[in-house]
């Protein structure tokens, strides 16, 4: 599993470098065809580069730290046992910690399902992991402003909780109406 992930990462890296190469070639061709645009293009690219370089290393350090300090076991331990409002808060809290990309969260969620955690908490945890990350919110604050960031955050939390609860209801309902079908699904 881990080897598989590494292999995928390596392939993704090669693909990105190839796309980067193509992008550079296109940029060079376009700039030599339209030399009058050169200044605008290099100026906006440079400005963008400076903005990124001040933020990215700090965010990466934060993610690295939390990935090491907040273990998957801790998350499973707390989320597996709590339900109700407290469960929802914990799901959002653990999801929001800066701990790596979404695919890291799927195995954690799978363990949670096996441990009998509530579906709503798992969905909320996954969605929080995907879009309510703490460093992500800080970057959003910097680039899109306080109003945009806060409003989107509040709306996202509200709707993610609603989504988690409704998916739980849907799963419960379909499991009840066709128990056999659910068994087939679970065995896959």
């Amino acid at each position: 599993m881990k080897e598989n992930m590494k292999e995928k990462q390596r392939k993704g890296m090669i693909r990105d470098i190839i796309i980067l190469g193509i992008a550079i070639v296109i940029a060079i061709v376009l700039i030599s065809l339209f030399p009058d645009k050169r200044e605008v293009i290099t100026a906006s690219s440079w400005e963008f580069f400076i903005e990124m370089i001040w933020i990215l290393p700090a965010v990466m350090v934060l993610m690295g730290l939390f990935a090491v300090w907040v273990s998957k076991e801790t998350v499973v331990k707390y989320l597996g046992e709590t339900s109700g409002i407290k469960g929802i808060f914990l799901a959002i809290f653990f999801g929001a910690l800066p701990t790596g990309p979404l695919y890291v969260a799927f195995p954690v969620a799978a363990v949670l399902i096996k441990k009998g955690a509530k579906i709503s908490n798992i969905i909320i945890f996954l969605s929080a992991w995907a879009c309510i990350k703490i460093p992500q919110e800080m970057v959003e604050l910097k680039f899109l402003g306080l109003e945009f960031m806060v409003l989107r955050l509040i709306l996202t939390i509200i709707f993610v909780v609603i989504m988690g609860l409704s998916i739980e209801k849907i799963i419960e309902w379909t499991d009840k109406t066709k128990v056999e079908g659910a068994k087939d699904n679970a065995s896959i």
């Binding site: 645009k37 605008v40 293009i41 690219s45 990124m52 290393p57």
Partner: peptide
């Protein structure tokens, strides 16, 4: 950080061209 760098540069070029 190294993993994300190529994508950063792709987007940097993309934004430059887009605004140009």
């Amino acid at each position: 950080f190294i993993r994300i760098l190529p994508i950063v540069f792709i987007i940097i070029i993309f934004v430059g061209l887009l605004l140009g």
